[in-house]
Each structure stands twice: as structure tokens, then as C-alpha cells.
């Protein structure tokens, strides 16, 4: 399997606060990859570094074969077209309707005529399971689950091969979270996506994540399939999976 994202020896520092001290991990083509860790373990920072919102102090991050730290303007622009990002709070543009939010990148970059563009937007909105009337609503009029879905539709607008999700199920009720997990699985099947997600949702980790990395102590303390990770004896992993909630989940999962 060839890897889509390769992170090696990444060091990140905010002032005197060392966040990452030599992170290594790789994401393979077509898998759903989970980034786990407690609050403040630098998962979201790592995600931001993968999507070029932030630069690490040293190390190497390559996405689709391009080294993010030595990238030209044109390559960076092309690369940004290859992924979609779902931000934690949705980050929908509040002055635009859902349809305009989904279509904004298409309008800017694809140069398609209006009627085709609308067809594509409508398809994406239905694809993420939103009703048609949602297209004309503004973000402020949406519920939490609808915001996540609309934001996912926007992330998928350009048919990216790579999807980054920052805590996709946070703030959703268990039913909504489960439906969202299912949606991500379906979309992966349909669109051949590679998905990288930051999450603490034990249910998501059990049901949809293929491989995962656990961040702790400024490093990756375990990487691999859930089984491989759970067999590690590192205290953080023990706490995470064998704490009260993790134990219940393990029993259900069997």
C-alpha cells in the first residue's frame, strides 16, 4: 500500500511550549485514519500542519508525494484542490446560504456554467443527506448536525481524494454521530476517499477507523489497527481504552 501522507520527525513549538517532539506516522491510500489523544496533545495542531495552516519548526510532512515545507506557490495551490476539510465548528461562511457555501469553490475554480454548477451543488447536498430546502438556508438557521453535513458537502465540492475531519462527531447526539459515521463510510466507498480524522469519540474509533495513531507525551505512542494499538501497555492507552467508558465500549464491540 502506498502512503498518501507521510509525517516524519515533526517538531512543533509554540514559544517555549513544545507540542510535538518527533512525530512519525503515515496514512495509506483509501483508509480512514484516526488521530487520537487527550486535550492538548497536539492532534489538531498536527492536522493543521497537514493542511498547510501551520508550519512545524522542523521535520517533514509529505502529502500525495509533495513536501509541504518546500512547496512552490503553484504546487501549493494545486494541492489545496486535492483535499477537503471539515472544521470542528463547520466554519461555514455565515453570509452565504448552504448552496452558496457548497458551490463557492466550484464557482471560483471550475468555471462551469450556472445550471451545471447548480446540479453539482444539489447532488452534493443530497449526498450528505441534507433535505433540498436546506440549500437556501443560512448557517445560523441550521442545527448542529446539519452544519456538519453542510460543511462536509462543502469539503466534498471539488471531489477531493483526501478528506480531513476535525472532530466530526463532536457536539452531535449519539444517533446523529452514528449516522454521520455511517455517512463517512458510505462516502469513502462511493468516492474512493482517504480520510484523516481527529476524534475522541470511542464509537467512531470502533466502527469506522481503519488505523489510528495515539498522540501523547509529545510523540506518537502507538500506531496501527485498533487491535494492535490496544495491545500496547502504555499508560495513556490503558487509560483511554480500558477506562470506564472504554471498557463498556469494548464489551459492546465484541
Amino acid at each position: 500500500m502506498n502512503s498518501v501522507i507521510q509525517v516524519s520527525n515533526v517538531v512543533t513549538r509554540f514559544g517555549s511550549n513544545l507540542v510535538h517532539d518527533g512525530i512519525n506516522l503515515s496514512v495509506r491510500q483509501g483508509e480512514i485514519y484516526g488521530l487520537l489523544g487527550g486535550s492538548g496533545s497536539g492532534k489538531s495542531t498536527l492536522l493543521r500542519e497537514m493542511i498547510m495552516l501551520q508550519r512545524p519548526q522542523s521535520g517533514e510532512i509529505s502529502v500525495l508525494g509533495y513536501d509541504l515545507l518546500s512547496l512552490g506557490r503553484n504546487e501549493a495551490a494545486w494541492l489545496r484542490g486535492q483535499w477537503g476539510v471539515l472544521f470542528q465548528a463547520g466554519a461555514l461562511y455565515s453570509s452565504l446560504t448552504v448552496a452558496e457555501n457548497v458551490g463557492i469553490k466550484l464557482k471560483e475554480y471550475a468555471g462551469l456554467p450556472g445550471n451545471i454548477l447548480q446540479e453539482i451543488v444539489r447532488m452534493k447536498i443530497r449526498m450528505v443527506g441534507l433535505p433540498d430546502y436546506a440549500a437556501n438556508l443560512y448557517p445560523a438557521e441550521l442545527s448542529g448536525g446539519m452544519i456538519k453535513r453542510a460543511s462536509l458537502a462543502r469539503a466534498l465540492a471539488m471531489d477531493p481524494g483526501l478528506l480531513f475531519l476535525d472532530e466530526p462527531t463532536s457536539g452531535l447526539d449519539p444517533i446523529g454521530a452514528e449516522a454521520f459515521d455511517k455517512l463517512i463510510l458510505e462516502l469513502r466507498e462511493m468516492l474512493n476517499l482517504t480520510v484523516v480524522m481527529v476524534t475522541h469519540d470511542l464509537d467512531s474509533i470502533w466502527t469506522i477507523v481503519d488505523r489510528l495513531a495515539v498522540l501523547g507525551d509529545k510523540k506518537v505512542i502507538a500506531e496501527g489497527s485498533l487491535k494492535e494499538v490496544m495491545s500496547q501497555s502504555h499508560p495513556i492507552i490503558q487509560q483511554f481504552f480500558h477506562g470506564e467508558r472504554g471498557r463498556i465500549r469494548v464489551q459492546h464491540g465484541e
Binding site: 445550471n115 451545471i116 446540479e119 447532488m123 471539488m158
Partner: peptide
């Protein structure tokens, strides 16, 4: 072909 291409053909 991606989904946008399909939409075009379908259209």
C-alpha cells in the same frame, strides 16, 4: 471521471 463529470453527462 469524478462526480462533477458524471453530473455533466447526466445533464
Amino acid at each position: 471521471i469524478d462526480s462533477a463529470g458524471m453530473v455533466l453527462i447526466e445533464y
